[in-house]
């Protein structure tokens, strides 16, 4: 899932200070699971900002609401009135949610309340770690199910770098060397021969380096006729 982290509150307060009516919109999907922008976090932020305004003697109307998935227009449309009725919207979703609102209502101001972080998995309660960078060409069937692109600081494809020592990464000694983990996993699976096979240089054009990516599934797309029938423009 997408893991995000709330921006520092002083930064948020500063961002919103010039506006009279603020709507804070959370999301019940990924950011609710990672405790950054769900219903509870929105309520806490609304309260905290109201307390700050009370202290500073600033008159600002702050409302909070939550949608099921902020990255999908259909859900955002349900709260259109609340969005357009405010001077500014603070999105407590990942950047996808904030940009969806921004694209839907380009004249309206939409600011981010979170810093979008990683594609992560929960390691334990309150800890999420990056296991995928969305490079667009998955190879984990050859690396024991462990991604060297995301988990190796240098995204090495053919074994560890010279800086790997005592199974730790030289970039951060707290982090396990990805290739050490890959070796262990392949050994466990009795597939150590794979570690000797050479992986050619990666084609990064499928990654973000190739520019903005769009994924299309033709059979799922609506035809012009279907769009007309559903009232989709």
């Amino acid at each position: 899932m997408i893991v995000a982290k709330r921006k520092p509150l002083n930064e948020i307060a500063e961002m919103l200070a010039p506006y009279k009516k603020v709507t804070i919109i959370g999301c019940r999907s990924c950011v609710a699971i990672c405790l950054a922008g769900g219903e509870k976090e929105v309520k806490m932020l609304v309260s905290a900002l109201k307390i700050k305004n009370k202290r500073d003697g600033r008159k600002q109307q702050i409302e909070g609401t939550v949608v099921e998935r902020q990255c999908e227009k259909e859900w955002v449309q349900e709260i259109e009135d609340e969005i357009l009725d405010s001077d500014v919207t603070l999105s407590m979703a990942c950047s996808l949610g904030a940009q969806t609102i921004g694209d839907m209502y380009p004249k309206h101001l939409t600011f981010p309340g979170l810093n979008t972080g990683i594609f992560g998995v929960p390691e334990e309660q309150g800890v999420w770690s990056e296991n995928c960078v969305g490079c667009g060409n998955c190879i984990i069937h050859t690396t024991g199910g462990i991604c060297p692109i995301a988990r190796c600081a240098k995204s090495m494809l053919n074994g560890p770098c010279g800086g790997s020592a005592n199974r730790k990464c030289e970039v951060n000694l707290e982090v396990d060397c990805a290739w050490s983990a890959i070796y262990d996993r392949l050994k466990l699976q009795n597939r150590l021969d794979l570690i000797e096979s050479v992986t050619p240089a990666k084609d990064w054009s499928a990654s973000h380096s190739g520019g903005r990516r769009v994924i299309v599934r033709e059979d799922a797309k609506l035809t012009q006729h279907q769009k007309k029938g559903k009232g989709v423009t």
Binding site: K40, M44, S47, A48, K50, I51
Partner: peptide, 11 residues
């Protein structure tokens, strides 16, 4: 007790 309850009290 949640942070929400504490902040709401102050609010």
């Amino acid at each position: 007790v949640d942070g929400m309850h504490i902040l709401r009290s102050l609010e």
